[in-house]
Design a protein around this nucleic acid. Structure first.
Length: 313
RNA sequence: GGUACGGUAGCCAAGCGGUAAGGCGAGGGUCUGCAAAACCCUUAUACGCGGGUUCAAUUCCCGCCCGUACCU
C-alpha cells in the first residue's frame, strides 16, 4: 500500500474515436495543471491535421525545448514526425515514459490521452518489447512464402507462439518469426510485462454506439468541409506514397481510388464514415477487456474521479 | 394502353425442376516494432401474390400486383 502510493500518479483518458477525448482532456489539464501525452498513432505526424482530427496548436520554445501547445497546455508525442517516417510501439513506450517522468519532475500532472489501445497498454502495463527492429531483408524473404509455410516454420521455432497466434495473419506470424530468429529466443518468451510503474487512473469516455456513429458521420462531413481533400493532395504531391503507415490511416487511404479516378468524392466520404465506424468498434473491443477502466458518461463524473484520485480540495 | 426485362434475407446479387452461392452491411473477437494496421469468427426456415402442370417448383405455364426501360 505504501509502495503503491510512492508511484507517480498517471491519469489515462481513453475511448473510441470521436468520443470527445480532446475536449475532455483540455478541460482536465487546465483544471489539474496537466501535461498531455498523446497516445495516438496517427496524430504523431506533421501535416496530417484534418484527417487525424488533431486539435490546432503551436510549437513554442520553452528554454531549450520546443513544445507543442494546445490552448496553453503542453502536448507531447503529437505533430512531430515526418509522414514518411515510421513510428512504432517501442518508440512510443520509451518516449511516453520519458515525457511522463518529465511532467512528474516538473510537478505537473501527466495525462495520457488517446485511442491507440496497444500504446496505452505498453506504457501502463510496462511492456518489455523485444529489441528486434524490423528487418526488411528478412521480412521480404519471409513474405515470399505462403502463410501456411510460415506458420509451419513458426510451429518449429516457437510452438508456444504458434498456438496463440492467428494462423492467417501473415504480418503477425512474420514478426514472431523475425523476433525468434534474430534473437535466437522464442518470441513467446519475450512478451514480458514489467512491474507497473504508475499509480494509474484509467477513464473511458462512454458513448452510446448510435450517438457515436452519428458523431463520426458529422465529423467526417466537417473534415471534408475543412479541406481534407487538399490536405491529402498535398501529401501525395510531396511524394508520400500510399503504402506508408501514415498514408494507410483512415482519412487518407480512402482518397487513393478517388485520385485515381475510380470513385467519386461521395463514395470517399461514405467509405470514410464506414471505416471510421469499424475502427471505433475495434477500439471498443480492445478497451472492453480492460476491467480497470472507469467508464464515464459525463465530463463531471470524470472530473470527480480525477479529483478523488489526486486527493485535491 | 402496348412491348421488354426484373421482383431472392437490412442492401446488392448468383442460381435453378428435388427447399438456395457469394458480397456488402451489422455484431463479436485476436492483439508486445506497420495497431486509424493486420487477421479471425458469427449472422437471417430470404425466392412479390394467387392459381395450374409435376412425385416434386424459387426454377415451367396462366393471371394479378409492383418496379425499371422503351414504344404509343
Amino acid at each position: 500500500m505504501r509502495l503503491e502510493n510512492k508511484k507517480p500518479k498517471l491519469i489515462v483518458l481513453l475511448g473510441p474515436t470521436a468520443c470527445g477525448k480532446t475536449s475532455w482532456s483540455l478541460r482536465l489539464a487546465k483544471k489539474f495543471n496537466g501535461d498531455i501525452i498523446s497516445a495516438d498513432s496517427r496524430q504523431v505526424y506533421k501535416d496530417m491535421n484534418i484527417g487525424t482530427a488533431k486539435e490546432p496548436g503551436e510549437w513554442l520554445r520553452i528554454g531549450l525545448r520546443k513544445t507543442f501547445f494546445v490552448q496553453d497546455i503542453p502536448h507531447h508525442l503529437i505533430d512531430f514526425l515526418d509522414p514518411g517516417k515510421q513510428f512504432t510501439i517501442s518508440e512510443f513506450r520509451d518516449k511516453a515514459l520519458k515525457y511522463v517522468k518529465l511532467a512528474v519532475k516538473n510537478r505537473r500532472q501527466p495525462f495520457v490521452v488517446g485511442g491507440t489501445g496497444l500504446y496505452i497498454s505498453a506504457l501502463v502495463d510496462n511492456f518489455k518489447i523485444p529489441k528486434i527492429p524490423a528487418n526488411k531483408k528478412l521480412r521480404n524473404s519471409l513474405s515470399e512464402k505462403s502463410i501456411d509455410e510460415l506458420f509451419e516454420l513458426l510451429t518449429l521455432i516457437d510452438p508456444e507462439s504458434a498456438k496463440k497466434i492467428d494462423k492467417k495473419n501473415k504480418r503477425r506470424v512474420i514478426r514472431a518469426l523475425e523476433v525468434s530468429i534474430l534473437s535466437g529466443e522464442p518470441f513467446s518468451k519475450q512478451k514480458i510485462k514489467g512491474e507497473q510503474l504508475f499509480n494509474c487512473l484509467k477513464i473511458g469516455i462512454e458513448t452510446d454506439r448510435e450517438v457515436l456513429y452519428k458523431r463520426i458521420d458529422e465529423r467526417v462531413d466537417q473534415m471534408i468541409k475543412d479541406g481534407l481533400e487538399q490536405e491529402v493532395k498535398k501529401l501525395v504531391d510531396k511524394k508520400y506514397i500510399w503504402e506508408l503507415p501514415s498514408m494507410s490511416g483512415i482519412g487518407y487511404r480512402q482518397f487513393k481510388d478517388y485520385f485515381d479516378g475510380k470513385i467519386s468524392l461521395k463514395q470517399v466520404v461514405e467509405n470514410l464514415k464506414k471505416e471510421t465506424r469499424r475502427y471505433a468498434k475495434r477500439q471498443l473491443t480492445w478497451f472492453r477487456r480492460d476491467k480497470d477502466i472507469k467508464w464515464c458518461k459525463t465530463y463531471e463524473e470524470a472530473e470527480e474521479l480525477v479529483c478523488r484520485f489526486l486527493e485535491c480540495k
